[in-house]
């Protein structure tokens, strides 16, 4: 089978080394030497202003883009020797724009597509599909044409279609953009449960509150490079604000309030409330 992974591999670990990407047309170095290591089971958020290279970076993780220089390894294997399809069995990527991802005529066939390619069938396939639809609040919409769903639910469908593949790594490109409050809550829950199953979750987002609440590690990108990398309380601490501002980001409100009241680094609402005391 083409999806067989070369060699044994209990966990999935990702690494980029000196990763440079130049889009053929244009000549901009969209990635300018990125060294990144993500261990199995980590929850990582990637932030940075538009055009800083976030999408370009994550599209290297499943081979949709290939390095101009440097390399990407998945469980120590150079991704250059693996097809996108092989990588896709490890790294599930939800695209930034659902309309570029969705192609099927019904919600069910859209969600079935991935697991089928990975060789799932019968009860296992049905189970994977129904759990993905349940998690994204799309149960009951199996026969619906994706064109008839609103933007927010189309994004959730794109998420479901990757969730159903149950890949050890889940990469979400801007899952919160254009999402309403209920959709945002769904996304949060999906990330929580994926993490609790030991899966790695990497997400790009502009919502700093969401980032601080749902991710243990935050990576800040500017002009194709990583400028900050650490825990939310480190990246959103006052001494990193200048670096954040240099890529037009503001820390979450809780962090700003904590700073004003001299409470130390309080990136999340919960940490702020705790710091405020009884």
């Amino acid at each position: 089978m083409s999806h067989d992974w070369p060699g044994p591999s209990p966990v999935t670990e990702l690494r980029t080394e000196g990763l440079v990407h130049r889009y053929a047309d244009g000549g901009v170095r969209a990635l300018d030497g990125v060294d990144l290591h993500v261990a199995a089971g980590e929850r990582v958020a990637i932030v940075g202003q538009n055009g800083s290279g976030k999408t370009t970076l994550v599209r290297h993780l499943n081979g949709l883009l290939r390095p101009t220089e440097g390399r990407v390894t998945v469980d120590g294997t150079d991704a250059a020797g693996l097809t996108i399809a092989q990588l896709a069995s490890r790294v599930g990527l939800v695209f930034q724009d659902p309309d570029r991802q969705i192609f099927a005529g019904s919600v069910r066939s859209e969600v079935e597509f991935g697991p089928r390619n990975l060789g799932r069938a019968g009860a296992e396939l049905r189970d994977a599909v129904s759990r993905a639809l349940e998690a994204t609040g799309l149960a009951g919409e199996e026969a619906t044409n994706p064109y008839d769903l609103g933007q927010s639910r189309r994004k959730l469908l794109a998420l479901a279609s990757v969730l159903a593949m149950r890949t050890p790594v889940l990469v979400l490109d801007e899952p919160t953009t254009g999402q309403d409050a209920r959709g945002l809550e769904r996304v949060r829950t999906v990330i929580e449960s994926a993490a609790s199953e030991g899966r790695t979750v990497i997400a790009i987002s502009h919502d700093m509150r969401f980032v601080a609440e749902s991710f243990e590690r935050v990576i800040v990108m500017r002009a194709g490079a990583i400028i900050l990398d650490g825990s939310a309380s480190h990246v959103f601490a006052a001494d990193a604000w200048d670096a954040l501002a240099s890529t037009h980001l503001e820390p979450p409100l809780a962090a700003a309030i904590g700073q004003r009241l001299d409470l130390g680094s309080t990136p999340t609402d919960a940490s702020l409330i705790r710091a405020l005391g009884p």
């Binding site: 083409s2 999806h3 499943n62 949709l64 097809t83 996108i84 399809a85 092989q86 896709a88 069995s89 599930g92 990527l93 695209f95 570029r100 991802q101 969705i102 192609f103 597509f113 991935g114 390619n117 990975l118 279609s161 990757v162 593949m165």
Partner: peptide, 16 residues
């Protein structure tokens, strides 16, 4: 091109 990328990203093997 978009659909090919979307399908490969979900495990459709069209290389080789």
């Amino acid at each position: 091109g978009q659909i090919t990328a979307a399908q490969r990203a979900r495990g459709l093997d069209t290389e080789g």
